[in-house]
């Protein structure tokens, strides 16, 4: 019953004065809420470091683990530098093929991230498009799209990705596996993640399409696709940004899981998941670092991005502010 109390602040009659100041005021509000949360700031720093480091991997990594010329089998299974028997050249040790683990993590993270981003991009475009369409048209089209989404939602994303992987390989054959692996992963993630976007966007679209500014645009005779693009989309995109953030972390995990299960990237092009799979084989023979460091990196990245996403959701939601 706090409505009467809040009413007074929510609707002070706005004066003509100082309208320009208000935009900045809102911006700085979001900035202030960001700075006031130490966890968020830390998460953002971790995310930026990991993303930046992996995207700039060729510049910051000591070696290129994809280049067989730089790899020496004699260096394989070296422990991290500070452990007895460690080599100063290899900060985090080496894997079974003698690759510098630190470099491999940076490169692997880059692969994971590119696949994740591309997959999420496909999912977002597909989901937003279908969501706008279903929400706008309504009726049977809407019912059909949403039932498909419901059915898909009952399968875990991994299962769908496995299915797509199997189908593609059935078509192109196992010989092409290495060349298609990248595209298959992106497609799998894209096709398994679209549902959430579609549902969110469809819901918001159904709300927005009945608002009077959309009616006004219809009256002017603006064609429906343009109304969707220019009026509805900008007004439903807020929640999508939140899902996008969190989904990138989720996509990286999915990629890692697929690669761990062996349907993802081959060991010649290691992603984080591939590294973890390789490391898993050596866990019980004492070479813990091969699985531990890629695993920790993955966990840190996912946690950091999720925390940033959580904050974003709260910051963009006026009700929680």
């Amino acid at each position: 019953m706090s409505t009467p109390a809040t009413k007074g602040i929510v609707e002070p009659a706005p004066a003509a004065a100082a309208p320009k100041a208000r935009w900045r005021w809102r911006d700085s509000d979001i900035l202030a809420s960001f700075l006031s949360s130490k966890v968020t700031v830390l998460s953002a720093i971790v995310s930026v470091l990991l993303i930046g480091g992996s995207l700039l991997a060729p510049l910051v990594a000591p070696t290129n683990p994809f280049d067989p010329a730089t790899v020496d089998l004699m260096d394989s299974l070296m422990p991290p530098r500070w452990v007895e028997g460690g080599d100063p050249r290899f900060l985090l040790g080496t894997d079974n093929q003698g690759r510098d683990l630190y470099s491999a993590i940076l490169y692997g993270m880059r692969v994971s991230l590119i696949i994740g981003l591309a997959g999420v991009a496909i999912a977002a475009v597909l989901g937003i498009g279908l969501g706008l369409f279903a929400g706008w048209v309504g009726g049977r089209v809407d019912a059909f799209v949403m039932r498909v989404a419901d059915v898909q939602l009952t399968f875990p994303a991994i299962l769908i990705a496995l299915l797509i992987d199997g189908v593609v390989h059935g078509i192109v054959g196992n010989a092409q596996r290495e060349n298609t692996a990248f595209a298959v992963l992106i497609l799998s993630i894209g096709l398994s993640f679209w549902v959430q976007y579609a549902r969110t966007v469809r819901g918001s679209t159904m709300v927005e399409k009945n608002k009077d500014y959309v009616q006004a645009a219809r009256l002017i005779g603006i064609p429906a696709p343009l109304i969707l693009l220019k009026h509805v989309l900008p007004n439903v995109i807020g929640p999508v940004l939140v899902i996008l953030t969190i989904n990138i972390a989720l996509a990286v995990i999915t990629e890692a899981t697929l690669s761990f299960l062996g349907v993802g990237l081959p060991p010649t092009q290691p992603s984080l998941g591939t590294l973890i799979r390789i490391g898993n084989d050596f866990l019980f023979s004492g070479e813990w670092w091969i699985v531990a460091f890629p695993g920790l990196t993955l966990a840190a990245f996912v946690l950091a991005v999720n925390l940033v996403g959580d904050w974003l959701r709260d910051a963009l939601n006026p009700k929680l502010r």
Binding site: K211, D212, P234
Partner: peptide
């Protein structure tokens, strides 16, 4: 043309 009831909903906020 038309003028709507709620001036907070009839103008696209973006």
């Amino acid at each position: 043309q038309m003028i709507f009831q709620d001036p907070f909903a009839s103008l696209d906020p973006r």
